[in-house]
Design a protein around this nucleic acid. Structure first.
Length: 370
DNA sequence: AAACCGGGGCT
DNA sequence: AGCCCAGGTTT
């Protein structure tokens, strides 16, 4: 292993000076935002907050966090709850596998660790749903272990301070970054240090317009010295966007709507949705929905007017969802490939965890006054 | 409305 | 190293 002689002569990953950690900590002590999960050092609450903060911004997380720890104040309470209830509490946050993993791990913690979170990085990392980031966050913040936790904010700060010009998301530059991240964590206050790094990335060392003049690391930052803040780190390369056309049926029968629960595994696992299917390139919505309702749900239905259309973007995918009002005229309801199917009153929609695009759809239907 | 930013976990 | 999961903010 290791690079060629040439590579090792060329440039070693420059370790960050010790000064950077104390600067960062001093800045954090002054500027840290007062966030609900920073008020206690309960490992469980830190865990919940870290999972919610994956792929979701602080402002969005705050109200959900309060409701969630209100409903499930301890690991045991979470483990006791049925998954459905947990998903309902998560509804709207997106990326529901996070909630499923959290719930699954809570049950493991109760079964194998007596209801208390294990206190080392290695033991945390072994729990389902906890990867390097989350295990590092809990280990350092709740248990003072000297391990890094590297989110996108931390990547940006480290890459800029050390001016890592390669692709920090892959290959050698990635390894270098992670090595740097490990050595950079100070033995004192590792948890605060990690939070400071991420906080600096979020507030100061922003992707597009870093506030270098206000940065506590300004005079240590190699990218700034070289005027390369804009090009370091290299943006992640993205696959081209794919458009998917989906038709959904708002199916009525005796004043109730048909809702189907997705299989527990996989995309939007366990969530409830309006029956829907991807439109084949040449297919019409009416034909697609008629066949779907017949074959998957055992219903003969008439497809009526278009009652809504929206676009939902997810990563590099663009879902164009069109909804049609349908009337079920006969048949005995089956779940098909879904986990379940049921008829609900419109006002009961809110009690179900729906995928984001279907939530949008449901909101529109209700505001329309149906 | 388009462009852009967000990454963890698993195998 | 590559695959899967499946949202929000900015401009």
């Amino acid at each position: 292993m290791g690079g060629s002689v040439g590579a090792s002569l060329r440039s070693r990953p420059c370790d960050l000076s010790l000064a950077h950690a104390s600067r960062l900590l001093a800045w954090f002590d002054r500027e840290r935002r007062d966030l609900p999960w920073r008020r206690a050092r309960d490992p469980y609450r830190i865990w919940v907050s870290e999972v919610m903060l994956q792929q979701t911004q602080v402002a969005t997380v705050i109200p959900y966090y309060g409701r969630f720890v209100g409903a499930f104040p301890t690991v045991r309470a979470l483990a006791r709850a049925p998954l459905d209830e947990v998903l309902r509490c998560w509804a709207g946050l997106g990326y529901y596998s996070r909630a499923r993993n959290l719930h699954r791990a809570a049950r493991v913690v109760v079964a194998e660790h007596g209801g208390r979170l294990p206190e080392t990085f290695a033991a945390l990392r072994a729990l389902p749903g906890l990867g390097d980031y989350t295990a590092g966050a809990i280990a350092s913040i709740a248990f003072d272990e000297r391990v890094p936790c590297v989110d996108g904010n931390a990547v940006r700060v480290l890459a800029r301070v050390a001016c890592l010009t390669g692709d920090v998301h892959a290959g050698r530059a990635r390894q270098r970054l992670m090595r740097l991240a490990h050595t950079a964590v100070p033995p004192e206050r590792p948890g605060d240090y990690n939070q400071a790094l991420m906080e600096l990335g979020a507030l100061i060392c922003r992707p597009l317009d870093p506030a270098c003049n206000a940065c506590c690391l300004g005079d240590l930052c190699e990218a700034r010295r070289r005027g390369k803040q804009q090009s370091v780190p290299l943006p992640r390369r993205r696959p081209p966007t794919q458009t998917v056309r989906v038709a959904a049926g708002i199916v009525w029968r005796r004043g109730r709507l048909l809702l189907a629960q997705r299989p527990l595994e996989g995309r939007w696992g366990g969530l409830w949705e309006f029956p829907n299917a991807e439109l084949p390139p040449e297919g019409t919505a009416a034909a697609t929905l008629t066949r779907l309702l017949a074959e998957a749900f055992g219903l003969r239905a008439e497809v009526g007017e278009k009652v809504g259309a929206l676009v939902h973007g997810i990563m590099h995918r663009r879902i164009e969802l069109t909804a049609y009002e349908c009337r079920a005229v006969s048949g005995r309801t089956q779940a098909g490939t879904h986990a379940a199917a049921k008829w609900v009153r419109p006002e009961e929609l809110g009690e179900h965890a729906l995928p984001a695009p279907h939530r949008k759809l449901a909101r529109r239907l209700q505001s329309r006054g149906d």
